[in-house]
């Protein structure tokens, strides 16, 4: 199981939880599992999200390995100037 942290405005779409747990070994599995478990998150995930793994932000990168020992945080997909 992987624990993933949701940002505040997503929590209402995931039973009010800040941390949710899903079965996943990489980012793709994580996002698929989140969309399935919490359909309310699916539109945001489809639009695009970033993921922070132990403090490093990844914008896409489905096959990044994650495990229970990692800190995984969902973040909005970001753009720069």
């Amino acid at each position: 199981m992987v624990r993933v942290k949701l940002w505040g405005s997503l929590r209402a779409l995931a039973d009010g939880e800040e941390w949710v747990e899903v079965e996943a070994s990489n980012f793709k599995e994580l996002l698929d599992a989140l969309s399935e478990k919490y359909p309310g998150l699916a539109p945001q995930i489809k639009r695009g999200v970033s993921l922070a793994l132990d403090g490093v932000i990844y914008r896409e990168a489905w096959f990044t390995k994650i495990g229970p020992e990692n800190e995984v945080v969902l973040m909005p997909y970001m753009v720069g100037g």
Partner: peptide, 21 residues
């Protein structure tokens, strides 16, 4: 408006987000 915007607001409001701990 995105699904994160609460109902009842002006239709101009398209995005709502919240962060913190």
């Amino acid at each position: 408006a995105l699904e994160t915007v609460p109902a009842g607001m002006s239709q101009n409001v398209t995005t709502h987000c919240q962060f913190g701990h």
